[in-house]
Simulated scan of single mutants.
Amino acid sequence: MASSEEDGTNGASEAGDEKEVTRKRRRLGFLATAWLTFYNIAMTAGWLVLAIAMVRFYVEKGTHRGLYKSIQKTLKFFQTFALLEVVHCLIGIVPTSVLVTGVQVSSRIFMVWLVTHSVKPIQNEESVVLFLVSWTVTEITRYSFYTFSLLDHLPHFIKWARYNFFIILYPVGVAGELLTIYAALPYVKKSGMFSVRLPNKYNVSFDYYYFLLITMASYIPLFPQLYFHMLRQRRKVLHGEVIVEKDD
């Protein structure tokens, strides 16, 4: 799910346990920590540039129409650059599941490249603005959180924002993504985009229209699980509650 947030990625502890952060930092080593710090600073700056560009466009134009086209290069670059987070997990400098991180990053890239970029008529939909604003605020908060954590100097406001902004931004982002995919359905069905029809020499078929429908349906079980997981993390970090996970 594209709007979901990773836990413990980029070398910073989500639990805010300073001793645990220090222990992990020593294990990472200087070069890994330096790289992760640079990466998170760069990503924070990139999403800040995107935010400024969005605000400037709206102030100058007074409309959201044309907004995506004006910021798409920056969005595509920094969102695709996030694939490095999968590499971080693979080489072990970030203690997070490769599978979880891969799904989260790839779902964002899917929304950018295979939905919004590919189905150009939907780029002026208001739903695109919904997920753009949600993603941008979320990523500025998330990457700045990781940056300050790696520097062992985490301001209270950044920590507070990390565990409060998502309460609104996560549902808004998910709504924007779903509405954008829904808006793309008629164009995909009419054009046959990315679909493979029979007969063909490989004797396989693929219908991108139904793939999008399945993708939308997958939000139903995934969203509540991820959202309530973040709420549990919030209680643990901000209020010191001990969360006991029940075995299924």
Rank of each mutant, 00 (worst) to 15 (best):
F223G: 11
G240W: 00
F166T: 06
G11L: 09
E177K: 04
V244L: 13
I181Q: 01
P121G: 04
L226V: 15
L212P: 02
N200R: 13
K73V: 13
Y143L: 13
E20M: 09
Y170F: 11
L222C: 06
I140L: 06
T44Y: 11
T33F: 09
S149N: 09
E60Q: 09
I214H: 06
E60K: 10
A2P: 14
T215F: 15
A51C: 10
I140C: 07
F228L: 14
E139C: 09
I158V: 15
S106Y: 11
K120G: 04
A15I: 07
L213C: 12
A15M: 10
V94D: 02
S3R: 01
V55H: 04
F57H: 10
R235V: 02
E85I: 12
S218G: 08
E18P: 01
K19D: 07
T9S: 10
I41M: 12
C89I: 12
K159N: 05
V105D: 03
A53C: 07
D152G: 05
T9L: 10
Y68E: 04
K159L: 08
F38S: 11
T147E: 06
H64S: 13
S4Q: 09
M216F: 13
F145L: 06
K19G: 11
K189Y: 03
A53R: 13
V128F: 04
L185D: 06
V86D: 02
T215P: 01
C89W: 06
F206Y: 09
S195E: 11
L67R: 09
L231M: 09
K246A: 03
V112A: 01
V128G: 03
K61E: 05
S13D: 04
D247E: 10
T141Y: 11
M43E: 08
P121E: 00
Y227G: 12
F206A: 08
F38G: 15
L212N: 04
F78M: 13
V133N: 00
N40G: 03
S118G: 08
Y58L: 14
I214V: 15
G92F: 05
Q79K: 15
Y219C: 10
V137H: 02
T33L: 14
Q123A: 11
H229R: 15
I243Y: 02
D17E: 10
D248S: 11
K19C: 09
S205N: 08
I93C: 06
G102K: 11
Y58N: 12
H64W: 13
Y227L: 11
V133A: 07
A51R: 05
F148E: 07
L31T: 12
A32K: 06
S127F: 07
R235E: 03
F38A: 14
G62Q: 15
E6T: 14
A12Y: 01
N200Y: 14
T80P: 05
D17Y: 05
L226T: 12
K236R: 15
F157G: 02
V59W: 06
D248F: 07
P186N: 03
I41P: 03
V119Y: 04
I71S: 07
Y143E: 06
F81H: 08
T180K: 00
L83P: 06
E20P: 00
L179D: 00
L179P: 01
V55G: 06
